[in-house]
């Protein structure tokens, strides 16, 4: 699976080169101005796209972690760690973009709305995960701990979200089943942006995986030359 990801790099890079400019065009030219929020609303397209990627990569962290616990091969641990690095990147972007949007629209930089809180907790989770990995070094046990944490985290996130919703809610529910709540041009722009960012995210991940696989080969060679 990891080799397939690295193999798909070329296709992903072409996809990124085509899709990102296309989504830029759609976001800034094709999509109409929103009536009440104005130009600021255009942040929304990338906000949704980065948020989706943040959640996609936590899923990948958990999946890679599970495979690592079963197979105990370092490749999977490295894949999980790389996915977490991208996850923290996308969630950080989501929080920043959301904050930029909230200032003119809600009149605050931050509010304790459920989705914001869940996203913030997810950010804390990713940072904690990377802290565990940073301290792991050569320790197999720490790596397995990171994997356990990754799995527990993905099980926990729905509960976190549910509990925060129960706590309070004011976030605009833009995408509801059966009722898109926005004109088709906006919807298409959003979908294209999400796809473009997903392809970009996967492309970055495949580059990371390639670097990890190279560094693993270097270490294996070192171990051969300098056996302990």
């Amino acid at each position: 699976m990891i080799r397939a990801m690295i193999g798909a790099q070329k296709a992903l890079s072409i996809g990124t080169v085509l899709l990102i400019p296309a989504s830029l065009y759609m976001v800034f030219v094709y999509a109409p101005n929103e009536a009440t929020m104005g130009v600021v609303q255009r942040i929304f397209y990338y906000h949704v796209a980065t948020a989706w990627n943040g959640y996609l990569f936590i899923g990948l962290v958990a999946l890679m972690s599970l495979i690592y616990l079963i197979r105990r091969e370092d490749t999977w641990n490295r894949a999980a760690r790389s996915a977490a690095e991208l996850g923290v990147l996308f969630i950080t972007l989501t929080l920043i973009a959301g904050s930029l949007w909230a200032r003119p629209v809600w009149n605050v930089w931050w509010t304790w709305d459920p989705r914001l809180v869940t996203t913030l907790i997810l950010w804390f989770f990713y940072v904690a995960y990377l802290l565990i990995q940073a301290g792991a070094g050569e320790s197999q046990r720490q790596k397995r701990f990171a994997a356990v944490f990754g799995i527990v985290g993905v099980i926990d996130i729905p509960l976190v979200h549910y509990s925060v919703v129960l706590w309070r809610s004011i976030h605009p529910n833009v995408v509801r089943p059966g009722n898109p709540g926005m004109p088709p041009e906006m919807l298409i722009t959003m979908i294209v942006s999400v796809i473009a960012f997903t392809v970009l995210g996967l492309y970055l991940w495949s580059r990371r995986l390639e670097v990890e696989s190279l560094s693993q080969r270097v270490e294996a060679l070192k171990a051969k030359v300098l056996p302990l």
Binding site: A128, L131, F149
Partner: peptide, 15 residues
């Protein structure tokens, strides 16, 4: 490390 990894997961318990 313990509070850093534990507290985010405990959101439902705290709330």
């Amino acid at each position: 490390l313990l509070p850093l990894v534990l507290f985010p997961l405990l959101t439902p318990v705290a709330l």
